[in-house]
Design a protein around this nucleic acid. Structure first.
Lengths: 347, 347
DNA sequence: TGTTAGCACTCACGCGTTACGAGTGCTAAC
DNA sequence: GTTAGCACTCGTAACGCGTGAGTGCTAACA
């Protein structure tokens, strides 16, 4: 779609004004507020054209114009100015990094908080999806006669635990030995690399303890493959109450529902990224979740060794401040990558 | 405070009607709806007395009456009928128990969900506060040259992890030995029992690895003592939007703030219980958290070996359905206790 | 031919008025 | 002691109306 410069400027004025005020905007207001050197009548003519093109719309005759989804899309694609982080924002992120971040879980929670704090939009942060990470260490820990604890550490130092129930659990020494063997075979592998052949080979070596190995391997596969165990952190969900577009209770509730339900959170995070390395902007009904069709999403994957893994996202009204949100998301993305690198340590 | 039977019945009618409808209730309505065998004029006189006693109040002259905090307190203490779980509720809890509950974290999350689902009030569930539980097992897991992972399992099978950074981390065999020694000394103890004497004795035995022991012990103490690491699960926070008393945005926001902030959650959960074994009902300003002064709380501790440990709580408007809430909380409390017993297993 | 001034028209919104109803307290009669 | 009746209060919903921000259309102008 091509717009002449005047239409371009008018659309830009409408979108950014609406992002700021949430009020429909009329020709006279544009003429007064933005010095375009043309009269309101001319602006009216141009606006009529923009409406024909589907970029803006009216709520009723004789109301001002409001950007349409297509209008937002055009804005995001063609006229949004990427802006740098303000010094306040940068300092906030810096501060967050300085505080000791020992472990993935803590970092995730803090990241969600920071996103929500800086943008005033609800934020979602997911742990890395394990199927894309590799196993760093496995440890079998004794619990009692009939159960043991399986501890799995990934290359991002995310730690997972699961109790394994058996008829009779091996004693401490045996578990220590088994742990060592498991590590010999599995450390450094991703789930994709654990295949039938490898399992058979391990079963041979495990001998009398094969009855322990089978459930343990099964659970490792489950832990790695199922979303069930991936923690998702949200923060600032209440922020949506501040937006007039959600002052209607049922609309606010829809969003709360989406953000409190793990299934729909995964739906939000899990859609394949058009540009997996970058930041994706999803406007209104472009996302397929009915509960969020009045919202826009800003998503990014953080990556480990260039493999996409976890996800961070912001949710806001369609008139969200895309420029600010994108810059904050990209800033935080970098911070996370740095921390992941640091956590990776000497490996 | 003593009320004659007529006043008692009238107050009961006012409280339960208001709990149901959230509308002030007048003498004529009571006369029609509840067959007390007296006229509205008589009821008016009695209501005037009840108001003098501070049990009910008017929002303005010529409006119906509304229970005061004192009135709710009287209701809860003297006239609330404890009710059994409905068969639906009982089945729901039964179902929850049947689903495999392997681990404390999962159980907590599900418990919070169930509480919120059954009552329509926001629910909070905390993990056991460690200072009151005992250590079941400690394991040191290798990570890399400069760090190791400390895994701590408690008697409720709650699992905590923390990365420990050292100048040079011992190798796998050493860690295995150290783990065994730590367990010999510490398993079965609560944090109160880890004293200077014991630490000195351990330092002697650890010899060359004393430089590992000190940070590890420090972190164990931290993990056990600090609230920071206690997970708190909330569910159904959005439910407050359904109550007309919170339709004012700022009032709803106050509650969202309280329930999203860990510090205030701890404040909610942490107040000493008047009756540590039972269910505590806190009405309005009886709780000291300003953000929640328009709310009532229903709290209970779940216990392990008769020591109070974790906490479950419901939050609602002052006119919450105390009878139902209490019965659900007590039902869930029992379920949790059963699960804890089962998790305790053969120990 | 593109731009602009002017005009008639639309429609949401705020405001004052009014009618209504649910509630009260008081008084007098039973 | 109880109740019927009455005057009074006050929040709320409905209504009408003026206002203002907006539109599209037309005619005049550069």
């Amino acid at each position: 779609m091509l717009l002449n410069e005047r239409k371009f400027k008018i659309l830009q004025a409408i979108v950014s004004d609406y992002i700021e005020t949430a009020e429909p905007i009329g020709s006279r207001t544009i003429a007064k507020k933005y010095e375009l050197g043309i009269s309101s009548a001319t602006i009216r003519n141009e606006m009529s054209d923009l409406e024909d093109m589907g970029l803006i719309s009216q709520l009723h005759t004789s109301s001002g114009r409001v950007p349409s989804e297509k209008g937002y899309r055009f804005y995001v694609d063609s006229m949004m100015q990427s802006r740098a982080l303000t010094s306040d924002e940068a300092m906030f992120l810096q501060q967050m990094l300085i505080e000791n971040i020992y472990q993935a879980e803590y970092m995730m929670r803090e990241t969600a908080k920071a996103l929500a704090r800086l943008t005033k939009y609800p934020a979602i942060v997911s742990e890395p999806f394990l199927k894309k990470t590799t196993i760093k260490h496995i440890q079998l820990v004794p619990l009692d006669e009939k159960s043991l604890l399986l501890v799995l550490v990934t290359d991002t130092k995310t730690v997972k635990n699961q109790v394994v129930n058996l008829n009779t659990a091996p004693n401490y020494e045996t578990l220590t030995k088994l742990s060592a063997q498991l590590n010999t075979h599995l450390a450094g592998l991703s789930i994709r690399e654990i295949n039938r052949q490898l399992i058979d080979k391990m079963l041979m070596q495990f001998g009398e303890h094969a009855h322990v190995l089978m459930p343990v391997l099964g659970i490792i596969a489950d832990m790695i493959q199922s979303e069930d165990d991936v923690r998702v952190f949200t923060s600032g969900v209440k922020n949506i109450l501040a937006f007039p577009e959600f002052s209607d209770k049922t609309k606010a509730e829809a969003i709360f529902n989406a953000l409190e339900d793990r299934a729909s959170l995964f739906e939000i995070l899990g859609q394949p990224l058009a540009s997996p390395q970058g930041i994706q902007i999803i406007i209104g009904a472009e996302n397929h979740l009915d509960l969020l069709k009045a919202c826009s999403l800003i998503k990014a994957n953080y990556t480990i060794d260039n493999q996409s893994t976890g996800c961070i996202a912001l949710i806001g009204p369609m008139r969200m401040d895309y420029a600010q949100a994108v810059s904050v998301v990209s800033g935080i993305l970098q911070s996370i990558q740095n921390v992941i690198k640091a956590l990776g340590g000497t490996q």
